[in-house]
């Protein structure tokens, strides 16, 4: 069966709800409408209003009540409608969701998933194109993952729901209804908190997640025509980071470039670069370079493609790494 990312997530949510009656969905417009991106399409019809909960318009309310639901033994999957609207819930996520397990010395678990459509490129107005992942990865107690393709969407959402830790689950909204991929439901998925080489190469390692995986694959394709061999790693997990495949790759290529839509300053790339430098310094032929959004607010959509790292910006960094 060929599916889009939206369908993959929808099917994964459905499977999780079938497998475990404690799984609930909460969020704005997730019921009848099926979410503004239709990720929860049809779920309220099939699982009822008690399990697919259209919430009042209040993100702190969604996350705060999810905490209570989790304490009562449920596994809430909270949908934040757009990245820029997670902030009203930020206090609940950072001060409560992230810390309850620690504070209670393990007695209180927070098995919840916070789904956030993230990233830009959809021509939207402000607050609809942001990449807040570093804010959550910087918060101990939260796990943070990002899917990049339909098949991962299907598996990773189920794995995140099964996790006993709270997982911030980032979905590249630009990809929701874009490329299709073949889903084999009988396959065994890779573990949730693992990175993966998605294209092998020998000259430079590109490190991406979410929407920029596609960008990097396209860059690798273009570079190949010019005789350059780029390896692309889909990080998939941002907290914890899975550095094994990254270090293994960089030891071979000697060059690494991180690519994300989020601002470069204190973004995920900074942490990855620091770890590479610490752990395979002598293998490096050039400094680890970071390609990302500029350190400005997300711009009006007519110039968003200038803001977003694209194939050319990645190849420009590849040139700089090779020429170093």
């Amino acid at each position: 069966m060929k599916i889009t990312l939206a369908k993959g997530l929808n099917a994964g949510l459905r499977k999780a709800m079938e497998d475990d009656p404690k799984v609930l969905i909460m969020g704005e417009d997730v019921g009848k409408l099926g979410g503004v991106f239709r990720i929860t399409d049809g779920l309220q019809k099939d699982f009822g209003e008690d399990r697919v909960i259209d919430s009042p318009l209040a993100e702190s309310g969604i996350l705060g009540t999810a905490v209570g639901m989790a304490m009562r033994g449920y596994r809430p999957v909270c949908e934040i409608q757009f990245d820029g609207f997670v902030y009203p819930a930020y206090d609940q996520i950072v001060s409560q969701v992230a810390k309850l397990h620690f504070r209670s010395q393990g007695k209180v678990r927070m098995p919840m998933v916070i789904r956030i459509p993230f990233g830009g490129g959809i021509g939207a107005v402000e607050h609809h194109s942001e990449s807040p992942e570093a804010q959550f990865a910087h918060t101990p107690g939260l796990k943070v993952v990002a899917c990049s393709n339909p098949v991962d969407g299907y598996w990773m959402i189920q794995q995140a729901i099964a996790s006993d830790d709270p997982v911030v689950f980032l979905e590249p909204k630009r990809q929701y209804h874009a490329d299709k991929a073949e889903l084999d439901e009988s396959a065994t998925p890779a573990p949730l908190f693992s990175s993966r080489v998605v294209r092998s190469g020998t000259d430079v390692t590109l490190l991406a997640y979410g929407p920029t995986v596609k960008t990097c694959l396209a860059a690798a394709e273009a570079a190949a025509r010019e005789g350059r061999s780029l390896e692309v790693i889909d990080l998939r997990t941002l907290s914890p980071l899975d550095m094994g495949p990254v270090l293994e790759s960089v030891r071979r290529t000697g060059r690494a470039i991180t690519v994300h839509e989020a601002h470069v300053n204190l973004g995920m790339g900074a942490e990855v670069a620091a770890r590479i430098t610490e752990q395979c310094f002598y293998a490096l032929e050039s400094p680890v370079l970071r390609v990302g959004g500029f350190d400005t607010p997300y711009p009006p959509s007519r110039i968003e493609e200038d803001y977003l790292p694209d194939l050319d910006r990645v190849l420009d960094a590849v040139d700089r790494a090779m020429e170093f």
Binding site: F294, T296, P297, P299, P300, R302, I303, D306
Partner: peptide
């Protein structure tokens, strides 16, 4: 359409060197 370079304008009252 705004100029691509306008992305950097008005982030701060006092532009930073960075």
């Amino acid at each position: 359409d705004p100029s691509p370079l306008s992305i950097f304008d008005h982030v701060y009252a006092e532009q930073t060197d960075e």
